[in-house]
Structure formats: C-alpha cells, structure tokens
Amino acid sequence: MMQDSSVDCVIGVNSVSMDERDLAKLCLQGDAAARKELYARYAPSLFKVCLRYAPDRAAAEDTLHDGFIKIFDSINKYSFKEEGSLAAWCRRVMVNLSIDRLRKEKKLQLQYTDRPPEPDTDGPPASLVRRIPPEVLQGFINELPPGYRTIFNLFAVDGLPHREIARMLGIKENSSSSQYARAKQILAHKIKNWLNNAAE
C-alpha cells in the first residue's frame, strides 16, 4: 500500500516530470501507460542484473519477463521512501527472482567451504582498472566459479550484506564472507595478469 496521506488524482503519464511516487501509484491502479513507462525506464538496468546471475541469455530473458510480471503484480507491496527507492525495489525483485531460479534449477553450485581465505593481497589500482574494457571485466567475472560469481555479484555489485546473502542462499554468514574474499582474490589476480600482459 502506498505510504501517502494526500489524496492525489494523477491523470496521464509524463515521462519528464513523473516521479517514482506517481509512477508507482499509477501502476498500482493498473494504468497501462505507467507500466510501459516503468518498463522503459528500468528494463535496461534490470536486464543487466538478470544477465549477471543467469547461466545464459535465454534464461536471463525469461527472468526479466517473469520479473516484470512480479513487479506489476506486487507493486502494492512497495512503499515510497525517496526518489530512487522504486528502482532499488525493482532491482531487488530481479535479484531475488534470479537466485530463486538458480536454486530451483540447481545451478547455484555454491562452494560449501569455511576454509579461511588466503592472506589478502593488494588489489590492482583503481585507475588502471578503469582502463580495462568493461566487457573484459565482465568476462573475468563470468569466468569465476558459479558460487563465487553469485556471491561476488550479490555483495560487490548489488550491495547486499553478507547476512542477507547467507539467508538468501541458505549458507552461513562466514561462508558468504570467505567465498566473497576468495572470488575477490581470483578476480584481482586475473585483472593483474591482464594489466601485466597489456603493459608488455
């Protein structure tokens, strides 16, 4: 239910001036134009979220389709807090749906280990990382083992805390931390190797 004490009558959709509060309200009322506006506004970033977790592009498209159905169907559960909260809420719906799909299809492949990670080494300089083509970095992440990749994306890219990740994946919080540390080491190693090769 929308957290709004005022009695508004929003007619029509103006993509320039429409804020998230009004957009969500219209979507709740079933306005087709508002729904299309929401899709146009957030679908590109949400598709990238799906691509991060899905094993392939076809699975990512299915997740995107089902995710928007879920967003429109459960928009009544969204409560406006500030501008940007609708985007974050939609993003969270997509992440949850992606993880659920992975679990149902048993493709999560978590590395169940509490082995402490190797001593942390320095990461590559941020300035050098920015010179690496984004597609190369995405490729490095995709090459990570599935469990490491999932936890890395959840923590480093989507910003979920380890406690939330542990609850979502059904693992211990320590396990989430150690697997993220291991993923980070592997990624840093790959980036350094690429930078060394590029320097040569």
């Binding site: 679908a43 590109p44 970033s45 598709f47 990238k48 691509l51 498209e61 995107l64 942390d120 320095d122 990461g123 590559p124 300089p125 941020a126 300035s127 990382v129 920015r130 690496i132 984004p134 597609e135 970095l137 995405q138 992440i141 480093a156 890219v157 980070k184 990624l187 840093a188 980036i191």
Partner: peptide, 21 residues
Amino acid sequence: NDNNWLDAVRDSIESIEEPLP
C-alpha cells in the same frame, strides 16, 4: 584501495549497454 578497485569494477560493468529482447 580495495574498495576503490571494486567500485571501479562495478562502475565499469554497469556501463555496459545490453539491448533489450
């Protein structure tokens, strides 16, 4: 430094444009 290079990784992959189906 650890956070910086990770932020750089995130910003980089977020900039990738993916055509919608």
